[in-house]
Design a protein around this nucleic acid. Structure first.
Lengths: 256, 256
DNA sequence: GATATAATGTTATATAATAACACAAGAGTG
DNA sequence: CACTCTTGTGTTATTATATAACATTATATC
């Protein structure tokens, strides 16, 4: 049946992200390669796939890769420490299991985390549009997107409306991103609105987890949103040095 | 210079959405086609484009087309009346000029409207994530995204949080989508949460504009969110029949 | 069951992608 | 300043893929 076959092809591509014509030929031995080509033509007009040389790609997969790179200076970030961020996200994901109400901050590390949380059904609150879309696409989670002004640079919501929204939501575990940490200034970030929100969430959350890759160490950004004393767990991609370890011990902050 | 050329190519593709290799060859006569191929290879690894047979496509354009089709049953909708929706959006866009605070509802017609509003800098409130992203991508508008539970089917926010959020926002003009209209039941839609929000917004807005394509006429969905008396302007893609015209006259609703 | 329409198959042809090697230009380095 | 190493580029032959046009088979409709 034509409709079924096209549906199947669509689903396969959706699942794998990309496939070669030859693979499809093998999967559908009953029809000729020309038929499959025509199926791909059809799916392309439906904006489900793009035909590439020798196969096809899923548009929604391509779009997802875009979501991961929304941040303005993404090229840099991507190169600098994509690996570190993955490591951090993998450490953080299991922590989410225990929470009944989770907050996820904006940022590319958080995007990685969102991907890993796919399986499971946590009620999740976030201020990042890309995180919300990622979470909602593939799972049964309840996603609560905070309202407020949308920052076009990083697709993140903040401002007075956001604070207001949070007022009625209780958070078990908050996963917060930091753009800098230094002994003098603590955990810092670069935008006032986001600073306000982070502060507020940390204050409300029963447990605060900071996700920060090692390149942020020693950097100071304009706003200090919290200090080690306010943090339960700090997750990094590398082992902390002695100074940081000592500070953490004193402040009761676990480093993972 | 390699970097400049790649940047240019990237921008051209970004702008046009798609281009053929031959066109690029013509635009860059100083380099061989092989060089351009290699540039495209590079841009592909950067997730900016997809190479297709004989050229390339911009990923962000592809993603945008996805935003337009997020609704679950989009295949149907798309075929039924994409043209009608464009007509409606074109009629509605100029109305937005006069408002100082605008609300835009979720839905594919609204997505068309969002595209047309690109030029200008309206402060815009919306509950549709795709509309918000579209608006924020290409312009100087202030976009205010309503908070609440994210509906994964249509990427639209609703629920108690959404109502709460709206409480402090004043709306000059509200552009609302309707899924059905009938004489007996008025303007209707299919989800309770969205119904609540629509009602609330209409009640708050100084001016209510309903956007509805002609295929919705005579249909009734589960929830009546308003009646002609509550509406200032109804925009459709076709001329109304006599019955509707009479009702509109009586209710003080202008039909465009 | 006859006719129209849609779906599929087949082939030849045109088109584009790739790989492999060759060449040139610039950046360090001794 | 020669050198060689890297990087960017060009050329060609080869391979792979897409297209177009027509032939064939299924499916629906009356």
């Amino acid at each position: 049946m034509l409709k079924d076959r096209r549906q199947s092809i669509s689903e396969i591509i959706e699942q794998r992200g990309e496939i070669s014509l030859h693979e499809l030929e093998a999967l559908f031995p009953d029809v000729s390669s020309m038929t499959i080509r025509r199926d791909l033509d059809y799916l392309e007009t439906e904006n489900k796939i793009v035909k590439i040389k020798g196969g096809a790609k899923s548009i929604s997969h391509l779009s997802r890769s875009l979501l991961h790179e929304i941040e303005g200076d993404y090229v840099q970030r991507k190169i600098v420490n994509a690996e570190g961020k993955r490591i951090i996200a993998e450490k953080a994901a299991p922590l989410a299991e225990s929470g009944r109400s989770i907050f996820i901050d904006a940022g590319s590390t958080m995007m990685q985390l969102a991907r890993l949380l796919k399986i499971g059904r946590y009620p999740i609150v976030t201020n990042a549009v890309n995180v919300a879309m990622e979470l909602s696409q593939n799972q049964s989670a309840t996603v609560n997107l905070i309202g407020g002004a949308l920052n076009r640079r990083n697709m993140c919501v903040s401002g007075a409306g956001a604070l207001d929204h949070m007022r009625h939501i209780n958070i078990d575990i908050a996963f917060i991103a930091a753009s800098g940490y230094s002994v003098e200034d603590g955990f810092t970030n670069g935008s006032f609105d986001e600073y306000e929100l982070k502060r507020y969430v940390i204050q409300k959350a029963k447990k605060t987890v900071i996700l920060m890759d090692s390149t942020k160490l020693g950097k100071t950004m304009p706003y200090t949103f919290c200090n080690p004393e306010d943090v339960d767990i700090l997750i990094m991609d590398k082992e902390p040095d002695e100074t940081l370890r000592a500070i953490a011990n004193k402040a009761g902050m676990t480093i993972m």
